[in-house]
């Protein structure tokens, strides 16, 4: 019966759409500014470590003395399994590679995979969560079922399986590693976003949008998205930390990035196992340490954000009030006479 000839084409808003869509982020910023105590410490320490990690990764070619696959320089091969010294601060590996350079380049790889994985899972998870939460019904049932099934797998196993599948398609590079990790994280975004979309869908402002004649796509983009997205930054930072670990796990099992493609901490750790027995501590210590610090940084950042943004954890600051001396009001008593028409006098 729904027949109409009136045009109801999509209308793309242009004015300050970005400002409004990310209006929710404004609250995040102000919450961060108000943070105090332990959450503040966690937040800023985490942010500092994470920033250090990102800088190292981005400027790796400038910081590292050699490239990750350089084994000779100035016509000389590097020493094999050389202990740390003036030229190779962190020593060299059995393949004559410079440990310092590989550790620094490892940060680059980790960052690339992390960013890609988070972006992929963010886009897919948020989109699917919004759709499932807003439309409900069969779409929601099926998506929830699939996501729960994914959740049920041990995450490393899932990543390994996904790694096998994707390596057949896109080779053994950064993108494959990122995609394998993405599969693990999509359900997390999906769950959180679907839950907040479900509650936002019941909000009066969503109904008001419907009453205005907005189409579902418009409602989702303009009314749900901005309100749902606020729960995402916390998971994103937590996932970032986790992604580094998962990538290393894959690398350690030899399933991650091929050693010829990039330097990877997990792979280096795997190669260093034999060295430990031989008393060589440097090949495993530095990549391992780098990994721990990077994960610690993002975890602190995530936990700090969670404490600051989660209203149930937030506490209002109390400032003590000192009451100044009280001056009692004077009292004027009217003589007990009848017919006092002061009520009229005021008019």
């Amino acid at each position: 019966m729904a027949t109409t000839t009136l045009p109801t084409g999509p209308i793309e808003p242009t004015v300050s759409a970005a400002a409004s869509r990310f209006g929710g982020l404004r609250r995040i910023v102000s919450a961060i500014r108000e943070a105090r105590g332990v959450p503040k410490f966690m937040l800023w320490t985490g942010a500092a470590i994470s920033a250090l990690f990102v800088i190292t990764a981005v400027f790796a070619p400038l910081i590292a003395p050699y490239s990750f696959d350089t084994y000779r320089s100035g016509g000389h091969n590097f020493p094999k399994q050389g202990s740390p010294d003036g030229t190779h601060w962190f020593g060299t590996t059995v393949q004559s590679l410079d440990v310092l350079s590989r550790t620094i380049y490892g940060a680059r790889t980790a960052l690339e995979v992390m960013v890609l994985a988070v972006i992929f899972s963010l886009i897919l998870g948020v989109l699917l969560g919004l759709l499932a939460g807003y439309f409900g019904g069969w779409l929601d049932r099926i998506l929830v079922l699939v996501m729960d099934a994914l959740f049920a797998f041990p995450y490393l196993l899932l990543a390994i399986v996904a790694g096998f599948v994707f390596s057949g398609i896109s080779g053994g590079g950064v993108v494959t590693a990122a995609l394998s990790i993405t599969v693990v994280y999509i359900p997390q975004y999906f769950r959180v976003v679907r839950a907040s979309a479900l509650s936002a869908r019941e909000a009066t402002f969503v109904e008001a949008a419907r009453a205005m004649g907005a189409k579902p796509s418009v409602v989702i983009r303009k009314y749900l998205f901005g309100n749902v997205i606020q729960s995402v930054p916390v998971i994103t930072t937590m996932n970032a930390a986790d992604a580094i670990g998962t990538l290393a796990g894959l690398g350690f099992l030899g399933l991650g990035i091929q050693p010829t493609e990039a330097a990877e901490w997990g792979y280096d750790l795997d190669r260093a196992i034999d060295d430990v027995n031989a008393g060589m501590w440097w090949t495993c210590l530095y990549p391992g340490l780098a990994m721990v610090i990077a994960i610690l940084g993002f975890t602190l950042l995530g936990e700090g954000l969670n404490d600051v943004l989660n209203p149930t954890m937030r506490r209002r600051r109390i400032s003590k009030v000192l009451l100044p001396a009280h001056t009692r009001r004077r009292t004027v008593t009217a003589p007990a006479l009848p017919d006092v028409p002061e009520g009229e006098a005021a008019k």
């Binding site: 009001r329 004027v332 008593t333 009217a334 007990a336 006092v340 002061e342 005021a346």
Partner: peptide
């Protein structure tokens, strides 16, 4: 100036200058 409390013959207390100067013109 903050108004005083004016106790009116009816027992009603009102804190307003209008009544205050009515009751006590010197104010």
């Amino acid at each position: 100036v903050e108004p005083p409390e004016v106790v009116l013959p009816t027992g009603v207390v009102s804190a307003c200058w209008q009544q205050a100067i009515e009751v006590e013109p010197s104010l």
